[in-house]
Nucleic acid binder design. Sequence first.
DNA 1: ATCCTACAATGGACATTGTCTAAGTCAAGC
DNA 2: GCTTGACTTAGACAATGTCCATTGTAGGAT
Lengths: 138, 138
Amino acid sequence: MSDLLERLRGRGWRMTAQRRVVAEVLNGEHVHLTADEVHARAVTKLPEISRATVYNTLGELVSLGEVLEVTTDKRAKRYDPNAHQPHHHLVCARCGAIRDVHPTGNPLSDLPDSERFGFTVSDVEVTYRGLCPDCAGA
Amino acid sequence: MSDLLERLRGRGWRMTAQRRVVAEVLNGEHVHLTADEVHARAVTKLPEISRATVYNTLGELVSLGEVLEVTTDKRAKRYDPNAHQPHHHLVCARCGAIRDVHPTGNPLSDLPDSERFGFTVSDVEVTYRGLCPDCAGA
DNA sequence: ATCCTACAATGGACATTGTCTAAGTCAAGC
DNA sequence: GCTTGACTTAGACAATGTCCATTGTAGGAT
Ligand SMILES: [Mn+2]
Ligand SMILES: [Mn+2]
Ligand SMILES: [Zn+2]
Ligand SMILES: [Zn+2]
């Protein structure tokens, strides 16, 4: 994720300890943390970081297109560092676990003009729901 | 929507003025109101109806499968009376307008086993995003 | 190396959405 | 018409997110 920090510096970002820590926390695959989860993890590395800064930083990363907002439920937005590879999500209805998935086919072409109501359609989001291996039991 | 009321009576629902009004408000096509919008409209017909009752009633209708919860954004859940015809949603990114849409094809079959991570997948939700005719300007 | 200053971080108040509870009310069966 | 348990109400509370005034500091200028 240091390439992320490089890109951000190139965009005129002032590099602070707080921003570095948030970027560190948002590292890995299948990472979809809420803002307060990001804050909780950030605090273990930088105890004085504030909630407001985490919210601000996440908002900036989203504006810059480096992080995606995902709302799979109505609890809290989740922040997804996997912004450069288009993908969709598979969510466990019981425990909330989230995996990145790559369906075949193009859902955009599955929406006929007669079903577009004059909209200019630019994006599709597909959410698969089910039970993860743990929650399916047995 | 009086068939809805019939079904509910059949299920042992006590029929109150509040429940009748909520059912009335949730009538029509492409209806996707938030709980507080439902409350605002209900109040015009039954001034003393409380927020708690609207939330309770909507929750019951969802449990009974008569109304769907839709979360197209992180603001508020929306309540969709069109529960008996499977469909997806087209959302205006600017004004939030929502239309029911019926894409062709079956997205479930577009998710290969190798992308299921052992989940038991039971449902798919597709959200198309774009600009409605008004918001696209011109 | 030190200084400056615009940008960033902080803490806390505030807003919105939703849940819960204790007390009062009433639909429906007898 | 009573009775009773289900329903409604008002308001407290909780979770998530936003805003603002103040304080701090990164990074360029000297
Ligand atoms: Mn993802
Ligand atoms: Mn709908
Ligand atoms: Zn699970
Ligand atoms: Zn619009």
